[in-house]
Design a protein around this nucleic acid. Structure first.
Lengths: 169, 169
DNA sequence: GCTGTCATGTAAGACGTTACATGATTAC
DNA sequence: GTAATCATGTAACGTCTTACATGACAGC
């Protein structure tokens, strides 16, 4: 099976946030707003929008030289379904989906935070396990100092993230 | 110009750490040790090793059914040069390079930490700028709550990372 | 006139994943 | 004997980046 695509969902989410966007505006969004969490180049965006139009996820509207895209009813459904799919291991998925939640009372928000918390707690456990398994004595630390550093760093990062999540639940 | 490849350098680093590795062993490394910071499948590894042998970065040695690879003098030079190249924006580059530093007295260690600190401080500034630029009042926060959350989360993450880096310098 | 931005699109190539394929050895 | 692991390799396919390409319009 082919790897799961996310670009179309990202486009849906972006268009949905602004109600109406052109391909060019989307590529600008990636240079600013969303840019810190996801990226796509215009040569991906245009063909993708065309495909999405063919699949009836979006409808378009020409205004001067620009073509604006809006979600269809199907598009809204597809987006909502994707938003509700459980988070996988992909690190940026959490940020990305969060970006598409505008309303602080949206029940999806809590669900997302809980899912991420679970994922991160598991990862924390796993990393702790790795640490005590790989670095059993000071000799091992000395002989693989860089590895020791990133592993402990990764653990602290997860801890910090878990704390943050807990504070917003 | 083509996008900068890192796989060959990762392979150099891994082989260098263990002095001698087969393609299979490398693919196992990705499932365990390095796996948290980088990944490659065996179908990338084998052809890459062949290319590296052609370029004289590694030499091989057959033992039974397995082919073991070791760095050549050129390979050591290439690896060292790559390790000394300044860190770019790529997030995992820091972890990866750190993984290849075994000795805590290696001067590269301090250099790496300093480079990463600089990068993260810049990013911190940038994100703070974004925050005060995008979320000027409570209305904006309310209307884009998810975006607000990840932005503040990203800022806290950088802060935490910066602290960690400072504590090791 | 030239530069920059708006706006869209295609083509070539690199990169990475999954699946296909094979054969030897080890463990139950 | 059959399943798992060791060990290597190729093929097909999809994705993403870079580069190529075009045209309009705004500002200096």
């Amino acid at each position: 099976m082919p790897k799961k695509r996310i670009l179309p969902y990202v486009l849906l989410g972006l268009i949905n946030n602004k109600k109406k966007l052109s391909g060019y505006q989307i590529s600008q969004e990636f240079k600013h707003e969303v840019g810190d969490f996801w990226h796509a180049s215009h040569s991906q965006i245009y063909p993708e929008l065309a495909r999405m139009k063919e699949d009836n996820w979006v409808k378009d509207e020409e205004e001067g030289k620009a073509t604006y895209y809006m979600l269809t009813t199907t598009g809204h459904e597809v987006l909502r379904n994707w938003m509700q799919e459980p988070l996988d291991g992909n690190e940026e998925m959490f940020s990305l989906k969060l970006y598409f939640i505008n309303d602080s009372t949206d029940p999806l928000l809590k669900k997302l935070l809980e899912q991420e918390l679970k994922l991160k707690q598991d990862k924390y456990e796993y990393l702790q396990g790795r640490l005590s398994k790989v670095f059993t004595d000071k000799e091992k630390i000395k002989a693989n100092f860089g590895h020791y550093l990133i592993l402990t760093r990764a653990i602290e990062r997860e801890k910090n993230h878990i704390e943050w999540l807990k504070n917003r639940l």
